[in-house]
Amino acid sequence: MHEYSIAIGIIDTLKDVLKEEFLCLNKIELTVGSLSGVYFEALHSALELILESEGLDNVTINISEEKGLFICSECQKATEIEPPLFICKECGSSRGKISGGKKIIIKAVEVNDGKI
């Protein structure tokens, strides 16, 4: 349940960025990599829990997935990785580089006007 630690980091970042507008938070949009080791439901629940403790009950949390890509050294194609197979879907080679899919990005937020 390391998602809780990650959620605390997200909320701290939002407080830093939004300052007093944090209390008007309405929506959080996140992009979570398919290889980041984060379970969406767990992150969602952790964020809800922390937001509730801050008195924010109605924040919409949207989490979208960013797939990791396998850039094949043999055929040079980029195909989506489907764990546990880290191979080229095109030619089956396991020689290549992984691109993307590892980060958890706070993409955007929306805040209500004049609630303070």
Binding site: T13, V17, I104, I106, V109, D113
Partner: peptide, 11 residues
């Protein structure tokens, strides 16, 4: 309603 594009790494 205001929208802010952040693109910040959560970690």
């Amino acid at each position: 309603m205001a929208r802010y594009e952040l693109m910040r790494d959560a970690l």
